[in-house]
């Protein structure tokens, strides 16, 4: 735990960032999501955080910036700059195994394929996504687009429940 008053180090900043949740999937932090690319601590408690956007139009990006600034200021940062870099582009391949497991427990089926360079984006078209509720594979796609840019809508015939699938990206 980081206490207020002390000068922030790079490690402390990473720890603080790892406690900022993704607004759409609150069980995952922004560091687990893999969008934080770099942290620099400059003189006079000035901190520069570099992010890669998850999705081009994801409204959560604006919130990430605000949250990062608010948290770091609360712990003594005098000035916080959030830089955005586009290259290399974010991919769901950067989600950790732990993050995927947390997602599943939260009721969202995590991405099942390795996307690489978008060549294999859709993986095997016949693939059945595993239901995060009952674990059966008797599922079908309802819609490729869902409540947020990252998710598709699926339905499980096993437990008769709809669920969200975090798309390969």
């Amino acid at each position: 735990m980081v206490t207020t008053g002390a000068h922030l180090t790079r490690k402390m900043v990473w720890n603080l960032l790892s406690e900022i949740p993704d607004p759409d999937i609150p069980v995952i932090s922004i560091t687990e999501l893999g969008i934080v690319r770099d942290v620099e601590v400059l003189q006079d408690d000035k901190i520069v955080v570099t992010l890669t956007p998850s999705y081009s139009g994801c409204p959560a990006m604006q919130l990430f910036k605000e949250d990062i600034k608010a948290v770091l200021r609360q712990y003594g940062a005098k000035e916080v700059e959030v830089k955005i870099i586009h290259s290399p582009a974010w991919t769901t391949d950067w989600l950790s195994k732990e993050a995927k497991e947390k997602m599943r427990k939260h009721g969202i089926a995590p991405p099942e394929d390795w996307c690489g360079t978008a060549v294999k984006l859709f993986g095997d078209a016949k693939r059945k996504i595993t239901c995060p509720h009952c674990g059966k594979q008797d599922t079908k796609l309802t819609s490729q687009f869902g409540s947020t840019p990252c998710k598709a809508l699926w339905f499980c015939n096993g437990c008769n429940q709809p669920f969200e699938y975090f798309k390969c990206y």
């Binding site: 081009s56 870099i85 586009h86 290259s87 290399p88 582009a89 974010w90 991919t91 978008a118």
Partner: peptide
């Protein structure tokens, strides 16, 4: 290049 790599997936 970076913008396009992301946009390509979309």
């Amino acid at each position: 290049k970076g913008i396009s790599t992301k946009a390509l997936k979309e």
